[in-house]
Amino acid sequence: MSANLGLYSVKALLILDNEGERLYTNYYTPPKEQKGDEENDGPLSTLKKQQAFEKALFAKTFKQHGDIILFESHIVVYKEVADIVIYVVGGLSENEVALSSVVDGFKEALDKILNYQVDKKAVQENYDKVCIAVDETVDDGIILETEPSIIAARVSNTPKNEPSLKNIDLSEKGFMNAFQFAKGKLAERLQQGL
């Protein structure tokens, strides 16, 4: 078998919950390549095929703690964390250990981002961060980063709420704040009005 000489090495990254339902699924295709017709596009080209693939894969791997499996002509490296499973899918000629470094890197980055409490609830509540973390790990099939500390550092925090009237405390210093705020607002209104 011929080794993959290109950089496209990850075919899919999936996060499923403990019933095999999708939390995050991304099947990668090189972005600028000509798309063939559906039938020739490989075994994972349509939603239906993907879901069947996930279902069968989940049944084979859940609670097995095997870390790796050859499945339907793919190498699948996976990791179970609490009630979710993270899968990285690659071709048969990929380097198994390289693929596993992707899963490991991503999982440890999630640990850092979600404060070492990775589970289904945390993933759902911090979906924005999880998405960015995946995007910083794999870019359309190319392994972008495997070092967890870098992936974690690349993920920005959710913005804080902007100051509103509710947050202003009315202590002495707070009063000055309130005054400044009112002044600013008033000036703004006046300018707009005129």
Partner: peptide, 15 residues
């Protein structure tokens, strides 16, 4: 907005 985009992505990433 960030929460909403996350929700949008959730849809896209679920197929």
């Amino acid at each position: 907005c960030r929460t909403l985009i996350a929700r949008l992505l959730r849809l896209l990433y679920s197929g």
